[in-house]
Amino acid sequence: MIRSELVQKICHDFPDLTQREVEGVVSALFDSITDQLAEGGRVELRGFGAFSTRQRDARVGRNPRTGEPVDVAAKRVPYFKPGKEMRERLNLGASANDD
């Protein structure tokens, strides 16, 4: 499923909203998750999972083409941990392996 398909499904669930409104609200929701992480916070959605960030130390990387060493600065990276309920749902018998 891609973003536009998600928008279609929400339009179907909320016939009183225009597609434009749904697109706006879907964007606002995902943006607020990103913004929260950018501010150093977490986002916890019970049953689905939790978004957080992790610190990566500075390291010396390598240009894979030339083999030349390059300094990679320390940074924060996004991290997602699926919730217990979600992990279990992914492995419910038939639907887990038949497609």
Binding site: M1, R3, L6, L45, G47, M86, L92, A96, D99
Partner: peptide
């Protein structure tokens, strides 16, 4: 409903891609 549709697709074995 947004979470429901995302969970549903994933539990049906479908990846979910949200551009951006």
């Amino acid at each position: 409903r947004i979470l429901f549709h995302m969970c549903h697709s994933l539990s049906e074995g479908e990846n979910v891609k949200i551009s951006g």
